[in-house]
Structures are given as structure tokens and as C-alpha cells.
Design a protein around this nucleic acid. Structure first.
Lengths: 199, 199
DNA sequence: TATACCATGTAATAAGTTACATGATTTG
DNA sequence: CAAATCATGTAACTTATTACATGGTATA
């Protein structure tokens, strides 16, 4: 159920069409809570049904229209209520660590490949999160800037600080995962001395 | 689809009944890949259907029976094949960080409560993972010991080392999450100086 | 006028969650 | 003989994934 609140968070800054919202989503809160377009569009409809949003038809070109969504008072209240709810922590389910626990069942090269892929994964994510963080700091992050421009209710330093805090957490996590995988590579080397790693 | 391989991993050590397997699961690989009993039993049946396991009826008491599952050659092959497959990384979906990104929308006390809960969550997990690690090191971990007793194929040091590696990764992660939440508490204090944290 | 991109989905499937259900057996 | 625990699920629901589908609009 978090998806709807992630969408609500964006729409509190300004009304948007489904398409614009989806785009904005992918370059901002989508880094924290992933969702594909095919999940976003139906969820918007459900949110209208549940009274959190209203939709209006706006013309697009000569004969076409698109749907713009705006948050209702009820939507804002729902968002605030959600902020107060206890977080429910998902159960641990980690495919990379699961593999690692049984590396004895495969060749060292395969294990090495998995760990290298783990490093690549988190280097990629680190790059993306770092880019978010830089843009926030440099005040060029489009979504955060739009938020700051439209928000008169909250302290702007706090708005920025919480986003920075969030992404710094992800960055640390990425570093941790990379360090873990490097330890794994060292372990493989200790268990299989002399074997050269492939290029 | 990882659940079946987590189950397979346990059953390669020895045949077990569904009940025994579920118990063993919860005190070992279940820490890495959670699953409730209601998911385990049906999955075992599907694995029999797919030829990875065979089931046999063993007497239980006077008039009852229970089902014991054993891994087939095909099951072992499937497990090895899975070990070689690329890991598919789940999309980022983090309820705690999602909340944190929008802390400006709630009272500092609520944000503080979330962060304290985050710390409590990861302190709990840390305790559990640390206990696993200690038991592995002290050679009292029932599942790992059973594995070592029955496994003549793999290097025992490697078996232990990979499990240690796995849990050490989790421990580091827990430390990271706790550190992150503590930074968040400091941030809240900076943004709201003078307000005393509730007991 | 072709191509990129705007716009909005549906359908089928898979996976996981929650709650409930039932009876047998062993043990104190 | 009561309580714990052994044993095995089913049903309903929610969430997420994957793949596909369709047509309009703006622009080079």
C-alpha cells in the first residue's frame, strides 16, 4: 500500500497527468519505492475511487485529452495519517545472500561472478543515488525544486535535509554491500589460492 | 522462485518431513529468506510434482502418517543450476526510507518514534543474526552441524566460511541501518533544538 | 512522412500475506 | 486428562511482474 503514498507525496506539490506523474516518479521517489507505469495508472484510478484524488480531463492536441489528477483534502489527510502509522518491515528475503550461503555448491568462478555482479549492481545504484544527492545539494533536482517552490507550509531546510538523509542512507548501504562482496572475493581467493581470476 | 531452492538446500543434507523441514527452515535459512509454513507445505507438493523431491508416507503413532521428502537427482541438478543462474535483484522498495524522505509532513516526535523503531528492528535482527553466527563458530548450530555430518562432497571449512560470510554481511547491514537512524535522530535534534526527547 | 515520445492502459501470472481450520499424538 | 506440539494444510486477498496493446501528437 505504500505506492499510493509515494504518488500522493508527488501530487501534493502540484496536480499532474498520469504521464507526467509517472515520469516524475521514476526520477525521484521511484528510487526509494519502485513501481512500473502499469502499476501507477491503475493505482491512480483507485485513488480517485477512494476519494484521495480528483481527476479532470484536459485537452491534448486537437481531438485528444489527458487526465490530470489533484490531491483532495482527504488525500492530504490520508497522507498525514500514513506518516503516523507504524512502518511494517518486510520480511527478510535476500537473493544475493541466499546464494552466498551455499557457494560451496558451485565453482569458485561462478561465485566470483555473482559477487562481481553484486558489486556492479551496487556501484550502479550508488551512482544513481549520488546523482540524486548532488542534484538536491546543488538545487537542481527538478522534483525537489518544484516542491520547494510550491510548499509554503514546511521548513525548506527540513524538506531538503530529510531527502539528503534518505539518500545518504542508501549510499551507505551501497558502500556496505560493495564492501561485503569484496570480502567475499577475498574469501574465495583464500579458499582457492593460486587460481587466477578471469579477466 | 527462491523458496524452493532454500528448501532444497536444507533437504540435501537429509530427508525430512514437512514439519521438521519447516522447523529447521525457521532457525536457519529462514533468516535469509523468510517464508511462512503456509507457503512451505504447498511448495513441497509442487516440488514433488516437478520431480525435484519424492515423498513417502511414514507411520506416525498408531493410526496416523506423515510425509517425508527426499531430494532426487533431478532436485540436486536443479539446485546446482540455480546456483549458476544470475541473481535477479529485487527492485528497491523501502518503507522506512520512504517515510524518512517526507518527515517534514509529520511531527518531530512521530519521526523520532519511527527512527527509534528502526533501531529496535535492526537491533533485534542483529541479535538474531549474531546468535546464528556464534552458533556456527562454536559448532553448535544444529542445521550447519547436521550438514557437516552428512556432507562428504564439499570442503567443510568452505561450508562454514560461506555461512559466516553471509551472516557477517547481515550484521554489517544491521549496523549500517542503526547508524543511519541515529544520524536521523541527531538531525531531528538539530532541526528542533531544545525539545526534549520523550522517555 | 517517419520517428520519437505522449498517453493509457489490460491480461495473465506469480508470489506473498493473513487468517483460519482440523485432528492426531505425546507428555506431564 | 489437559496442554503442548506435531502435522498439514486451504481460502481469500493483495501486491507485484511481465508482456503486450493501441493510438494520438509533435517535430525534424
Amino acid at each position: 500500500m505504500s505506492l499510493r503514498y509515494a504518488l500522493l507525496a508527488l501530487l501534493t506539490a502540484q496536480p499532474m497527468t498520469g504521464y507526467d506523474l509517472a515520469k516524475a516518479f521514476h526520477v525521484s521517489v521511484g528510487h526509494v519505492w519502485h513501481a512500473p507505469d502499469s502499476q501507477i495508472y491503475p493505482e491512480l484510478k483507485r485513488m480517485v475511487r477512494d476519494g484521495l484524488l480528483v481527476d479532470e480531463s484536459v485537452p491534448w492536441g486537437e481531438k485528444s485529452t489527458k487526465t490530470r489528477y489533484s490531491v483532495t483534502d482527504e488525500g492530504v489527510a490520508a497522507f498525514r495519517a500514513w506518516m503516523r502509522e507504524a512502518i511494517d518491515y518486510p520480511n527478510e528475503r535476500d537473493p544475493a545472500h541466499l546464494r552466498a550461503a551455499y557457494f560451496e555448491w558451485t565453482e569458485p568462478e561462478v561465485a566470483r561472478r555473482h559477487l562481481q555482479e553484486h558489486i556492479a549492481q551496487y556501484e550502479l545504484r550508488r551512482t544513481q543515488w549520488q546523482a540524486q544527492l548532488d542534484a538536491i545539494h546543488r538545487r537542481t533536482h527538478p522534483i525537489v525544486e518544484r516542491r520547494l517552490a510550491s510548499d509554503t507550509e514546511h521548513d525548506h531546510d527540513a524538506i531538503v535535509a530529510f531527502k539528503v538523509f534518505t539518500y545518504e542512507g542508501f549510499l551507505d548501504r551501497a558502500e556496505g554491500e560493495i564492501a561485503w562482496a569484496r570480502h567475499g572475493l577475498e574469501l574465495l581467493e583464500r579458499l582457492n589460492p593460486g587460481r587466477e581470476a578471469g579477466a
